[in-house]
Design a protein around this nucleic acid. Sequence first.
RNA 1: GCGAGGGUGGCGGAACUGGUAGACGCACUAGACUUAGGAUCUAGCGGGUAACCGUGGGGGUUCGAUUCCCCCCUCUCGCACCA
Length: 830
Amino acid sequence: MTSNNTVSNKYDFKTIEKKWQQFWEDGEVYKVTEDAAGEKYYVLEMFPYPSGRIHMGHVRNYSIGDVVARYKRMRGYNVLHPMGWDAFGLPAENAALKNNSHPATWTYANIDYMRNQLRQLGLSYDWGREIATCNPKYYRWEQLLFIEMYRKGLVYQKVTTVNWCDSCQTVLANEQVIEGACWRCDQPVFPRKMNGWFFKITDYAEELLADLEKLTGWPDKVVTMQRNWIGKSTGLTCEFAVEGSAEKIAIFTTRPDTIFGVTFMSIAAEHPLLDPIIAGTATEHEVRDFARQIVIDKQRRSLDEEAEKVGIFTGRYAINPFNSERIPIYVANFVLMEYGTGAVMAVPAHDERDFEFARKYNLPITPVVIPEGMTLDPATMAQASTIPGVLAGSGQFTGMDSLAAQAAIIKQAEEKGFGSAHVTYRLRDWGISRQRYWGAPIPMVHCDTCGVQPVPEAELPVLLPEDTEAGSGCLPLHQRPSFIATTCPKCGGAAKRETDTMDTFMESSWYFARYTCPRNETSPLDKAKAAYWLPVDQYIGGVEHAILHLLYSRFFTKVLRDLGHLDIDEPFTNLLTQGMVIKDGAKMSKSKGNVVDPNDLIQEYGADTVRLFSLFAAPPERDLEWSAQGVEGSSRFLNRVYRLIATNRELFTCDPAMPAQLSEPGKTLHRKTHQTIKRVTESIEQNFHFNTAISGMMELFNVLASVAGENADEKAEPAVVREAVSILLLLVSPMVPHFAAEMWEYIGNSESLEKMPWPEFDAEAAREDLLTIVLQVNGKVRSRLQVPADIADDDLARLALADENTVKFIDGKPVKKTIVVKKKLVNIVV
RNA sequence: GCGAGGGUGGCGGAACUGGUAGACGCACUAGACUUAGGAUCUAGCGGGUAACCGUGGGGGUUCGAUUCCCCCCUCUCGCACCA
């Protein structure tokens, strides 16, 4: 390629960016295949929902990912870097209603617009692998996976109390409820009974928990959040007989050591044994009404407010199997039916909630675990005691250490047959049913004679109806008779299609795997290709997905493995959770009116400047405060580099061979160049701290300008300048790819920049031969000394003691000690 | 309440295993060039006249602490009656 540039002193980013985007696209420069040379590296950014236009959060996310991709390519890796669209979801329906169009129309138009925006950012994606999850060619495989999971017993239907968002008219997963409000529209969420489809994610609870250990490349914070979310508890389940009834009520406790301190039992208002045990008691109706009221109150209450503890005596007693003690059974509003067994043995002396309840209803408090050196008086205790101690009043276990007693008590329960060791998880099964239009239809059929049947694989995909019945593009499927009517795949009789669609978290739970073989027509995954590329080496996205998306993706990976589609246990080896982009200290939002539109910035400064600033202003994991003036600074930097190169073109036609002897400025620049390679490489390798990498490059440029620019006093040799500029361009190229490519060509390189390897660091060149040593007296900096780098400690100490300033501060006092730190300082203690 | 992560100039942020606190950038000040300059270049830029004081506050370890230990304050995020 010959340089056809005319010299211009103006950095014309518009022309430059367009030119290189075209060049990359025409040459399919970022297309990858499995057979290329080099070790594979899969870098992935969380794909966007096609909401209309990209925002600064996307710009930041994708800029970070692109630097990683470009850097790894220069390092010789065969890099997979794909992009796609998380394209199903409610906003499309809302928009379609508003514009009287169709969700598909709206979605695809958004995708086209946003794809163009991403192209303008110069992101190095293999666009040939683009996925839109609303495309039947994608969701047909998801439907197949659903059926495979169904056959494996990982899918079931049940009636449950679900989280219902009235404004979105849909069911939400627990994870989609944020402080009692819908994660999407922020409206209050209410419980409602509904039949729905569930994935048995709890079957994988133990593995999901255990494998967190393997995720050493994940932020601790995310691992901890997942661990807490799964919420494993070990303890005892134990059955309590009900006096005067054949029923037995099972409880779960993590504190079996306190079982002799049980003074009552609390059960959930929805407990299935409530009705049977109260039948025939004098207070039956009263209790039933009370329980009903608890359920109603719970529904009315938004999920984030905690109600005052209330309860009512059922009129029945349970028998503690350990000491045969008779304890009253209460219905209490704070007992959750969804967790454990829905019944709790109450030990007010050692549990805060039970204590509060016991005080309120005047129930006895019996301390049985006495912490060392303490006495617990039920009459005066102000709160429950939850620390370990020695057992008291606990029959044969009295005197035992409370931790040891836990095992001993479980053992006895097992021997006597009324209880056993038990593990409970906080994690619930994943409800995936959504009563919407714009989602992947669940591929099942309901037949009156054959029951529920999966759609035969040959008939997949179950397509979303595209017709607009009654003039609406987004009637939920259950309101579309022509969709519902079908025949039973088993008996051929009239049957009804399932009308629920799948939670959109389904699509995002396996898209990363589909990118390895996005056009595969015969199965969800091409095993060989998936095996080559997976797992994702570096995943990058917002921390808001720390639980939902990342947990579901881990679950799906294990399911795909067990279905034989994959051979890995975990999808993402390394995870980077980038911080938010904020403005004036707050998250950008329309309501606050502090939104910065990437389009405007790209128009005004160009993509490279925008990328550069978003990488420079903060390390990736921290929040980034957007600053219009800061953007100016980044723009200025690129302009300076441009001008230096444009006005010194003759330097780049020189002989690149280094002279044997360099002038002082030449040496300085040469040294700084190699020090910068080291620094930038380390900043990227260690923790992706591009902010410090960029400041390093700015320092290099400052030195460069001082020995090569128009204002340079003493000039460095052309070959040194040439080297410095070349290396600077290589180092910045992952951040500002158009700019670097243009300058690279401009200084006369015939091979395009994308093909160049990352520069090698020359330790010899980087070595300082003079060091500045700090001289301290009593730990305070008093002077500095220029010494040869290879000076001996003795000589250095001698020089330090002779230094004019140190002598002044030693002030004739006796020197007690002299500490010499190699290459750094000398501290004289007097 | 529980868990995690932060508090460094006017601002964003640097500082490797304890060793020059404030790199780099922004803002600001002065000067140069200029009809002009929100362009560009040069210089300065934590506080204090100074000795000195300075990394949220208070103790401690050390020749030496933003860094390690203890106590406290504060901010952000996550979970929140999970038995």
